[in-house]
């Protein structure tokens, strides 16, 4: 409902918009690739990788708040997915894949917690800015988001319990519907709704406390 009233938002979420516009073609392609990938065809699987890697990496980035670790986790997730593709029994490939990505992120975080991690601050320090320059150019709304606010949001996300953060990442940041997010999280839609609400409220409290929201 809100998306239809916001042209900029729809343009920004072009990936999602495309998925809605030519759904039938995408589904036919996807099923063809899935069938071939199940038979071990890496090229067919790589078509799927190409289609979903931005989404997968973005989710990983927001889950781990560390671009390098997110890239590693994403790669690991695609390896895992390719190995397990024969066991994929239909349904939403996006949800199946994102579940693998999220699990790879949690595994990576468990592993990283036992050793010093690359903090987001250091990455930004090294690069001079948040490492998504092309997106800054694409999305006019991002210009409104100051570095300080972005850092506060990232810090707030990092503080959230996993499920609340995942709900926000999937619905607010990646633009999935409640139903799609529920499919990824393996939870009822009502649970997504409440996790999302609690996460948003917590982020709001942090934004207010840090003077980013009056």
């Amino acid at each position: 409902m809100r998306r239809s009233g916001r042209a900029g938002w729809v343009r920004f979420r072009s990936r999602v918009a495309v998925s809605r516009r030519s759904t039938s073609v995408r589904v036919i392609d996807e099923e063809r690739w899935l069938d071939a990938a199940r038979a071990g065809d890496a090229d067919a699987f790589n078509h799927l990788v190409e289609r979903y890697q931005s989404l997968a990496y973005s989710v990983a980035c927001r889950t781990l708040a560390d671009p390098e670790a997110a890239a590693d986790a994403t790669q690991e997730a695609f390896f895992s997915a390719f190995r397990a593709i024969a066991g994929f029994r239909g349904g939403s490939f996006q949800a199946w894949l994102l579940r693998i990505v999220v699990n790879a992120c949690y595994d990576a975080r468990r592993y990283a917690n036992r050793r010093p991690a690359t903090s987001m601050d250091r990455v930004i320090e090294e690069m001079g800015e948040a490492p998504w320059p092309d997106q800054h150019a694409v999305n006019p709304e991002t210009a409104v988001l100051s570095q300080e606010t972005l850092a506060t949001l990232e810090g707030a996300l990092a503080e959230l319990p996993d499920e609340q953060r995942l709900a926000i990442v999937l619905v607010d940041i990646e633009g999935l519907t409640y139903e799609e997010a529920a499919d990824v999280m393996g939870r009822p839609v009502g649970t997504v709704r409440s996790r999302l609400a609690r996460g948003r409220a917590r982020v709001r409290d942090i934004l207010v406390a840090t003077g980013n929201l009056s």
């Binding site: 890496a42 790589n46 990496y57 973005s58 980035c61 671009p67 994403t74 997106q135 988001l145 972005l150």
Partner: peptide, 16 residues
Amino acid sequence: LLQAMPAAAPARSFAV
């Protein structure tokens, strides 16, 4: 504000 968070663009391909 959350929606305005930039989507992270992968720096490399994850093809297997």
